Simulated scan of single mutants.
Amino acid sequence: MTVSLSDAQLPPVDPTRPAWPGAEETIGGVRLHVRRTPGHGDVPAVYVHGLGGSATNWTDLADQLSGHAPGLAVDLPGFGRSTPPDGYDYTLRAHVDTLVKVLGGLDGRPVHLLGNSMGGAICLLAAAAAPELVRTLTLISPAVPDLRPDPRRLSDPRLALAMLPLLGKRVRRSLAAITPRERTRQMLELCFADPSQVPEQRVAEAEAEYAERAEQAWANPALEGSTIGLIRSWLVVGPRSIWRAAPRITAPTLVIWGTRDRLMSVRKAPRTARAIPNARLLVLPDVGHVAQMERPATVARAVLSLWRSAAGDRW
């Protein structure tokens, strides 16, 4: 079905806006680093980043939506500035359980839940597991099962060797030695349709974040463990699979995909939207894997249409 775009007045996109302030918080018994966006409205928005990302991936979209909902962007355990608890195993299920606890700790209010990439898969499973906690669901290039062997999905060709039993350890050491500037370049080329259009401040922020991660002992294990956990989740069949969970979602849902997404093929978009009972699909031309960063105003207008329709119990 067609997705309408809200005509609400939105602030101009400001590429110089710094990341929203953050702090460690305990919500639902979970200790995470959280960035909060001030906003109006009774229903909070909760933003969940993807693999290798952080709460800063939502700076611009949260700004666009701040006039309509207070925001809460989380750093998942082992990402951003969230120190993982002892024994955290980085499976997709562990991330889902963490998110459900956080949602349950928000005064019992159902939220507008938004996720990108791995965060989209986490949000999908959380919405299926705890439908009473989710008012609406927005999935941006969610990491649904996609096992196609495509070298374009790798930011570095050596990643394919990094998981091998003997050679992998040496390859991982080599990958760890990549400079923050080079990591940033790889990320931009992999995630954005046109990296040259990314504002200089956002590039500098990404480079600073990679430099910060280089000093975190848990950053690489978190990335490796979550990558393995995500791929293993794609192999799960039966009631715990992502495709079997999708039909249990009751929240009105918006699925957004870019036609130039190198990581998650846009060919998965129609199946994803069909699998969720009350979902609509928005495909954006000339957009890559992180539509909320590449086209924050367009995404915001689609999200506001979802929110307003849900408030009237129609979507």
Rank of each mutant, 00 (worst) to 15 (best):
residue 5 L to I: 14
residue 163 M to W: 03
residue 46 V to T: 11
residue 112 H to A: 07
residue 84 P to L: 00
residue 149 P to E: 09
residue 96 V to A: 09
residue 120 G to M: 02
residue 300 A to Q: 08
residue 185 R to P: 04
residue 203 V to K: 09
residue 38 P to K: 10
residue 39 G to Q: 10
residue 27 I to W: 00
residue 162 A to Q: 08
residue 88 Y to F: 09
residue 147 L to T: 14
residue 290 V to D: 02
residue 234 W to Y: 08
residue 242 I to Q: 13
residue 315 W to L: 14
residue 46 V to R: 07
residue 188 L to Y: 07
residue 20 W to P: 06
residue 64 Q to C: 12
residue 64 Q to D: 06
residue 196 S to K: 13
residue 45 A to R: 13
residue 183 R to E: 07
residue 33 H to N: 15
residue 149 P to L: 08
residue 199 P to K: 08
residue 151 P to R: 07
residue 43 V to Q: 13
residue 309 S to C: 12
residue 246 A to I: 05
residue 280 R to Q: 12
residue 107 D to M: 05
residue 250 T to S: 13
residue 129 A to N: 13
residue 157 P to D: 01
residue 18 P to A: 05
residue 66 S to W: 02
residue 32 L to R: 11
residue 130 A to H: 06
residue 192 F to P: 05
residue 154 L to R: 09
residue 205 E to P: 09
residue 122 I to S: 01
residue 133 L to G: 10
residue 67 G to S: 10
residue 191 C to P: 06
residue 195 P to T: 09
residue 307 W to F: 04
residue 218 W to M: 06
residue 106 L to H: 03
residue 307 W to A: 11
residue 265 S to Q: 10
residue 104 G to S: 09
residue 166 L to E: 13
residue 285 P to V: 04
residue 238 G to D: 11
residue 157 P to Q: 01
residue 3 V to D: 03
residue 264 M to P: 13
residue 77 P to L: 02
residue 198 V to Y: 02
residue 260 R to G: 04
residue 120 G to E: 04
residue 310 A to N: 10
residue 166 L to M: 13
residue 6 S to D: 14
residue 183 R to A: 05
residue 129 A to H: 01
residue 296 P to C: 03
residue 105 G to Y: 00
residue 74 V to P: 05
residue 192 F to K: 09
residue 27 I to A: 02
residue 227 T to H: 03
residue 31 R to S: 14
residue 102 V to E: 04
residue 139 L to N: 03
residue 5 L to M: 12
residue 186 Q to L: 09
residue 85 P to D: 11
residue 214 A to K: 12
residue 244 R to K: 15
residue 61 L to K: 09
residue 215 E to M: 12
residue 242 I to H: 06
residue 188 L to W: 03
residue 75 D to M: 02
residue 25 E to L: 13
residue 228 I to G: 04
residue 79 F to H: 02
residue 51 L to A: 08
residue 126 A to G: 07
residue 247 P to C: 08
residue 308 R to Y: 03
residue 37 T to A: 09
residue 6 S to H: 10
residue 17 R to K: 12
residue 167 L to A: 15
residue 238 G to Y: 00
residue 300 A to T: 05
residue 134 V to E: 02
residue 171 V to C: 08
residue 170 R to E: 15
residue 268 K to N: 15
residue 298 T to L: 07
residue 271 R to M: 10
residue 168 G to P: 12
residue 41 G to R: 09
residue 222 A to Q: 08
residue 119 G to M: 01
residue 256 I to F: 04
residue 153 R to L: 00
residue 196 S to R: 14
residue 151 P to A: 00
residue 6 S to E: 07
